[in-house]
């Protein structure tokens, strides 16, 4: 059954994402030694078709960091980037470890080639970002929810999404999608954070945040 949210309810959820992304930025900043700001200027409930449109279509290649969610809320979360943006984010995250231009892979010649170090950094970016959301959510739950270890997949957007949609046995309008911008200095990188709770977990999530019935 579809759950409807008032504008006030949507603002409550957006506020949760916003606080979580602030914490994610702080964590990524301490990881990289740079000042990283993470913003979620746009949050929406949407369908799989909407998300595929946001990603550029089902055949568009994305780098996705997947984290499963289990506990009092169950489901899936994905942080999606275009391959060039993923390289740029990896450069920012690894800046404290490597000097400028020292990335082992030349992303200008093959945007789909990633060094292990880059993949590890991006995996951690997804882990930190999604865990920040779960931690923020956990403050409102009697029992916290836990993330699985992250997994990075570089694939067609449709193929990545159908893997989680099939597990939800649904293509209903129950995803929470947040356009997410990672900024450092003058550089800004766009990603999309998707939270896909199981149908019963979506109600628990929204109820815990106080987003229902207001």
């Amino acid at each position: 059954m579809a759950l409807s949210l008032s504008e006030a309810g949507q603002n409550v959820v957006a506020g949760t994402f916003g606080r979580a992304m602030k914490r994610a930025g702080e964590a990524l900043g301490s990881m990289s030694g740079e000042i990283i700001d993470v913003q979620t200027p746009m949050l929406q409930r949407c369908s799989a078709a909407d998300v595929l449109t946001m990603a550029g279509g089902p055949e568009s290649i994305v780098l996705a960091v997947y984290v499963g969610i289990w506990g009092s809320i169950e489901g899936h979360a994905l942080l999606l980037f275009s391959p060039p943006d993923a390289h740029r984010l990896a450069q920012i995250l690894l800046a404290g470890l490597l000097g400028p231009g020292e990335l082992p892979i030349d992303a200008t010649t093959d945007v789909l080639a990633y060094d292990e170090l880059e993949l590890s950094a991006l995996q951690e970016a997804g882990n930190v970002t999604i865990s920040a959301f779960l931690n923020e959510l956990g403050m409102h739950l009697h029992e916290p929810c836990q993330p699985t270890p992250p997994q990075v997949v570089i694939e067609m957007a449709g193929a990545v999404l159908d893997a989680v949609l099939l597990d939800l046995v649904s293509d209903a309008d129950q995803m929470l999608a947040a356009k997410t911008t990672f900024s450092e200095g003058g550089r800004a990188i766009d990603g999309t954070l998707l939270v896909l709770p199981r149908a019963d977990s979506l109600r628990v999530l929204l109820d815990a945040l106080g987003a229902l019935g207001i």
Binding site: Y66, V67, G68, W70, T148, P149, P150, Q151, V153, E155, A159, V160, D162, A163, V164, L166, D167
Partner: peptide
């Protein structure tokens, strides 16, 4: 019928 995601082992629907 691919196995896109292996984390958690619960997505063997392919």
């Amino acid at each position: 019928g691919a196995a896109m995601l292996t984390v958690g082992g619960g997505l063997a629907i392919g």
